[in-house]
Structure formats: structure tokens, C-alpha cells
Amino acid sequence: MYRFLLTGRWVLTVLIALLLIPACIRLGFWQLHRHEARVARNNLIGASLKAAPVPFDSLSPRPGFHVPGDLTWRTVTATGEYDTAHEFVVRQRTAADGGTIGYFVITPLKLADGHGEVLVNRGWVDSGSDATQYPPVPAAPRGTITATGRMRADETSASSGIRDRGGLPDRQFMLINTAEQAKATGATLLGGYLELASTDPAPADQPQLIPAPDHSDIGPHMAYAIQWWLFAAMVPVGLWIMIRREARERANPAPDTPAPTAPPIPAPAAPAA
């Protein structure tokens, strides 16, 4: 009854189905792992943002220090005076609205304990009408201040996907990178940088602060995983339905339809006498 499965067409059909099942299962687990990684990242960010602030230089003790993933977003503080002479901006950065392109304002902060300097991302400003000129930037507070914010790792082209390039106007860069700035200025910059959330005392004017990252969205990966597993379950069901239909059609072939016959041609009538 099922000898037709040995034909070339059906052998190929069954082989494709057998390959689709593990492929769909594997893709489902891939999406599940992405879901788990997203949840773990959100939990880490949430815990880091809620943690009590610690001094920046207690986590990043030296120049060239690579900030690991479990310290990224950790709440940190830095006390000292801004080094406005070495302030710079980072191009092509998005405002809090997610659509407006401008600059991040980065100002080094000389630590009061003398352990070096920390790059502080003071926030976002509009690019203005001339991208070849340094943009209007609210002045950094004078005197000793305490900056509180989120610890971030140095940006590189590999980690950020941003292509570093030369030939930019004075004090404009593409990346926030302490090694690059230390080479340019000779300052002792601790690895990583501080993404500002608040300043004590609060300044009268400042760039637009960067909002804390959203760590509530888990993404669609779990739904995608379930879809792939449903596809894996549907493949054998669909294959069995196709096989049964083929078997029924072969067991009960449709009767041949007789060819239509033309109506008889009437004989011509005899002529009248």
C-alpha cells in the first residue's frame, strides 16, 4: 500500500521533512538561549543600577583597565574638578528621543584623591548648523563636584561597530576611548568612563542627560522559540497527512471519465415525389 514511498519524489519529500525537524528544534533552542541572555542582561543592569554607589577608582584602579560586563552599568561616583581644557565631543550620537543626531560632551574629571582622571559623559547636545565647528556646550561646573553615574567600558570599533576615522575638526572624535585621549593629552585616565546621571552641587545648565537603559523589555525571542518548536511538531503531522492522502488516492483511483461522443447526424430527408 505504501510502496509509492520508494519512488524518487517521495524519498526526497521524506528526506526534506526529516532534515526540517531537527533544524526547527535547533533554531528554537537558539532563540531560547537568546531569551535567556536577554533576561540575564536585564537582571544585571537592574541590579547594577540599584546598587549603592561606589567610587569609580575602586572599580577601575588604573589606566588601560578593561571594564568587564558585570561592572558595566554599575553606579559609581567621582569627586574632583573638571579639566575643561581637554573637553571634547563625540559625533553622531542620538538624543533621548531616539531620532535626533548630535554630540556627546566628554569632560575629564581630575579626582580629588589624586588617583588620576575620569572621563565623564556629561550628556547630549545638538550639532548646531555647522558640523565643522565645535558645538555650543553648557559650561562644566567649576570647583569641586561629585559626579554620580553609570560605569561604561571604553568604546572601540570592534565593540561598538563605529568606525574610527581621522581628519575630524578639532576636539571632535568618533569614540569614547581613554587610551586615545591619554595619547592625545598625556593625562592619566582610568579605564572606562562615567555616564553622568547627577551632579552635586547641581549645575544651572548642563547637556541633556542620557537616560538609564531600559531593562524591562525581554524581546520576542521566547515567542520565536515556541514558533520554531511548533513548526518542528507540524512537519511530521503534515507529512503523514500527505502520505495518507496519496495512499487513499492510489487505493481508490477516480473512475475514468468517458470521452464525450458527438450526437448522431440525422439522415437527409427523401425528396418529395
Rank of each mutant, 00 (worst) to 15 (best):
D217A: 04
T261A: 11
A47Q: 14
R163K: 15
A223K: 14
T257H: 08
M222S: 06
A147T: 10
I241R: 13
E155A: 04
P22A: 04
I16S: 07
R244S: 09
G167N: 11
S157D: 09
P108Q: 01
R165A: 13
E81A: 09
S129P: 06
D200H: 14
G8V: 14
R245I: 03
D83W: 02
I25W: 08
T72C: 03
E36F: 08
K183R: 15
I45D: 00
Y2F: 15
R248S: 11
A85R: 14
V105A: 00
L49N: 01
M1I: 11
T107D: 02
E249F: 05
D126V: 07
P258D: 04
A158M: 12
W240C: 14
V54Y: 01
P263N: 10
S127A: 14
K110W: 04
V11E: 01
P211S: 06
P138Y: 03
A112W: 07
G128A: 07
F231P: 02
V11D: 00
G192N: 03
W229G: 01
I145C: 00
P258Q: 06
R244E: 12
E36Q: 15
L32W: 13
L111T: 04
T94W: 08
P211E: 03
A96K: 14
Q172N: 07
E246I: 12
G98H: 09
P135D: 02
L194T: 01
P53Q: 05
V14S: 00
W30M: 12
L239Y: 02
L175H: 06
V89Q: 00
A95P: 04
E246V: 12
M242E: 03
T156E: 02
T100M: 09
P255Y: 09
E87K: 12
P135K: 03
L194F: 06
S48D: 09
L209W: 04
G149N: 02
A272P: 07
R165D: 03
T94G: 08
D214L: 08
T146W: 03
S127E: 06
L32V: 12
P135N: 05
P169F: 11
A139F: 02
A223S: 14
R93P: 00
L12G: 12
H115R: 15
E246T: 14
E246N: 10
L15G: 10
W30S: 09
W229R: 05
W73N: 04
A197I: 03
P135C: 05
G64A: 10
G123E: 00
Y224P: 01
Q227E: 10
P203F: 05
Q133K: 15
A131L: 13
P253K: 07
R171F: 09
P63Q: 03
A52I: 11
Y2E: 01
W10Q: 02
R245T: 12
G238Y: 10
